[in-house]
Design a binder for these strands. Sequence first.
DNA 1: CAACCATGGTTTAGCTCTAAACTAAAGCTA
DNA 2: TAGCTTTAGTTTAGAGCTAAACCATGGTTG
Lengths: 131, 131
Amino acid sequence: MVAWLRLLRVGQKVSRTLTEDLKRWNLNLAQFDVLARVGGAEGLTQQELAEALLVTKGNVCQMLDRLQKRGLLVRRPEGRSNRLFLTDEGRRLFEEVVPSHQALVARQFSVLSPEEQSQLMRLLGRLDRAL
Amino acid sequence: MVAWLRLLRVGQKVSRTLTEDLKRWNLNLAQFDVLARVGGAEGLTQQELAEALLVTKGNVCQMLDRLQKRGLLVRRPEGRSNRLFLTDEGRRLFEEVVPSHQALVARQFSVLSPEEQSQLMRLLGRLDRAL
DNA sequence: CAACCATGGTTTAGCTCTAAACTAAAGCTA
DNA sequence: TAGCTTTAGTTTAGAGCTAAACCATGGTTG
């Protein structure tokens, strides 16, 4: 119980910091997630994206509308599904944001020693697989 | 980085399960949080509630509108702030939901041994305090 | 006392998200 | 080939959430 509250709390705090930082690029966490995911696995389908992000396809659809309107990515129809690709602008943003974001995450977790971090990872991994 | 993704992922999964379960009482996680908090510290003010939940006061205000309309709690003005109390119905719900919810949380975490759970708690606690 | 300031709450616009209904294109199967 | 069924995506209504503007009241200070 207490573990859960802490987990939630840490999650909220880190999210907040990341969200704040992403404003520099005029992105929020959800948009970043999409950008990062598509950038890292171009050609994936909307369904796959939804599953990867643990989010509904309806949500993905709306998200994409906005990002597409903003010129960061495109849907390429193929059969009855859409494959997703970053535009040049999207890719430029991706290349710029992702490393900076990762660095910030690393900084957030740097209170823990490397061993502790892998401890944490191990425990969370066990939980994740069990759910 | 990976630790962060896992944390997020576990958080999402557990949230989803809890949300699903709370439907039995016609509550969602946010509403539960408010109910649980107010029930556990009656007489607290909206500001305090917002801080406790790491959420904006605007959000709390809207949340309370709904829960109040539903007859689960009341705002009692005092000076320039509102003190929050559960109604009888709210309290009944509280008594019923909270234990069940805690049990579910415990079950979710039960893949980890007690020692591992306190390991996890310790690590998350360190992180939390550092943020 | 009057003007000012701080602070608790409310409102609003705009996003994310979900669930559920809907659309349309494949793919079967009779 | 005509009609079913499945499945990817879209739409819609409704709630959560935030930031920022706004409202009111209580406390301070000249």
